[in-house]
Amino acid sequence: RRRVRAILPYTKVPDTDEISFLKGDMFIVHNELEDGWMWVTNLRTDEQGLIVEDLVEEVGR
């Protein structure tokens, strides 16, 4: 599965499916959606939700 790492921290918008995360958090990407959004699991918190791909970088497989 594709893995990405947060290059900046992010605080979710209330009442959305987004998740908050810290710089350096690692994610497993489950689905890539329209407009640059991805459905992921945060490996640090085990939380699932939406993040925007502009805030992450690819991690070598």
Rank of each mutant, 00 (worst) to 15 (best):
N42P: 01
W37K: 15
D15E: 15
E58K: 08
V40K: 04
T11C: 13
N42L: 06
L43F: 05
T11Y: 07
G36E: 04
N31P: 02
H30M: 09
D17K: 15
R3P: 05
V13S: 13
V4C: 05
E53G: 15
T11H: 09
L22V: 12
G24T: 01
G24W: 04
H30I: 08
L50N: 02
G60C: 10
E53V: 11
Y10M: 04
D54A: 15
R5S: 07
E34P: 15
R1E: 15
V29R: 04
E34N: 13
F21G: 01
E47Q: 09
P14I: 09
Y10I: 04
N42H: 05
S20R: 03
Y10F: 04
L8K: 09
Q48M: 10
D46I: 10
S20M: 00
S20W: 05
V59H: 09
L33S: 10
L33M: 10
R2E: 14
F27G: 02
I7K: 15
F27Y: 02
R2N: 10
V13T: 15
E58T: 13
T16Q: 00
V29D: 03
P9I: 01
L8W: 08
D54N: 14
E58N: 12
R1F: 15
N42R: 03
P14Y: 06
E58S: 11
N42F: 03
T41G: 00
V13K: 14
E53Y: 09
D25Y: 00
M38T: 03
V56M: 07
R3H: 10
L8F: 10
I51P: 01
R44L: 01
Y10G: 02
K12C: 10
S20H: 00
W39V: 08
Q48E: 11
A6G: 04
R1N: 15
L50W: 11
V56S: 03
V40C: 10
E58Y: 06
M38E: 00
G24N: 09
M26D: 14
L43C: 14
F21S: 01
K12L: 03
T41A: 04
K23S: 10
M26G: 05
Q48G: 06
W37A: 13
P9S: 12
R44G: 04
W37I: 10
G36I: 01
D54S: 15
R5D: 02
N31D: 15
W39G: 04
L43V: 12
Q48I: 10
V13G: 12
P9M: 06
V52D: 09
L33H: 12
D54E: 11
M26A: 08
E47A: 07
F21T: 01
G24Y: 06
